[in-house]
Every structure is written in structure tokens, then in C-alpha cells.
């Protein structure tokens, strides 16, 4: 049975999508990821889509949903590694993935999450 693995790395969750998602798999990922966020209470979620060659409006909505639900559970989501052709296609499609944070690759995405978490913590301690 196909399944997208969700790895826990310190305060973060790491998801690497290695196949093009069809609907069932994508919906399952959404559900499993939200469960994992509730269980592990991570500060951030990093989704690597460098192997994904199609994002249509359905998939786009899944990413937006994940980001918004994670936000509700106090976790930042970063989608990394989008292929140039996929980015251009999304823009032409009229789907700019509002609310989804992006980074060039896993490393940059991690930097972004670490910085974000640091700033948030500083902000909280200053209050």
C-alpha cells in the first residue's frame, strides 16, 4: 500500500513526496499530517515537492489546507523544491498558492523554519 512517509526531526516534521499524488493519496497525506502535528506538536512542517511534476487546483488546495490547519495548531509550513515548470504552470493556471510559504530547497526551508521559530520565541519572551 502506497503511503507518503512523515518523518519527525527534532521540533520539525519532514515530508518528502517522491511520486505524483493522485487524489486518495493526497487526501490521506492531509489527514495523516494533521494527526502527526497533533501528536508531536512540532514547530514547523517541511514538505519537499521536488519530485512532483503536476500540481493542479485540487493538489494546490490540499497544500493550502495543510498550511492553514497547521497554522491553527501553531506550526509553520514550508513547501520546498518546486520545479520551475510547475511554478509557471501554477501561475498561468491562476493558482498562486496563497498562504503557503515556499523555499528553494530543504536546506533553505529549514533555515526559514528555524528563524521563524526563533523570532516567535523571542517575541513571546519579550511580551
Amino acid at each position: 500500500m502506497e503511503r507518503i512517509p512523515i518523518l519527525k526531526m527534532g521540533q520539525f516534521l519532514l515530508v518528502t513526496i517522491q511520486v505524483d499524488l493522485y487524489d486518495r493519496l493526497a487526501l490521506e497525506l492531509e489527514e495523516n499530517l494533521i494527526r502527526a502535528i497533533t501528536r508531536h506538536n512540532p514547530r514547523g512542517v517541511l514538505i519537499d515537492i521536488s519530485a512532483v511534476s503536476i500540481i493542479d487546483s485540487f493538489m494546490g488546495r490540499i497544500f493550502s489546507n495543510i498550511a492553514r490547519m497547521a497554522q491553527l495548531l501553531d506550526a509553520e509550513t514550508v513547501v520546498v523544491g518546486m520545479q520551475p515548470a510547475v511554478a509557471i504552470t501554477l501561475v498561468e493556471l491562476g493558482l498562486p498558492l496563497k498562504g503557503v510559504r515556499t523555499a528553494l530547497n530543504v536546506e533553505r526551508g529549514m533555515d526559514l523554519l528555524v528563524n521563524k521559530v526563533d523570532t516567535n520565541e523571542n517575541a513571546t519572551s519579550n511580551d
Binding site: M82, P84, I88, V91, E92, P96, L97, T102, L104, R108
Partner: peptide, 12 residues
Amino acid sequence: IKTVSATRLMGA
């Protein structure tokens, strides 16, 4: 605007 949006999707 399209160019800017595509660039942002790449994380830049």
C-alpha cells in the same frame, strides 16, 4: 505580477 508570483512559488 505573474513573474513575481512564479518567483515566490520557487521560494525566492
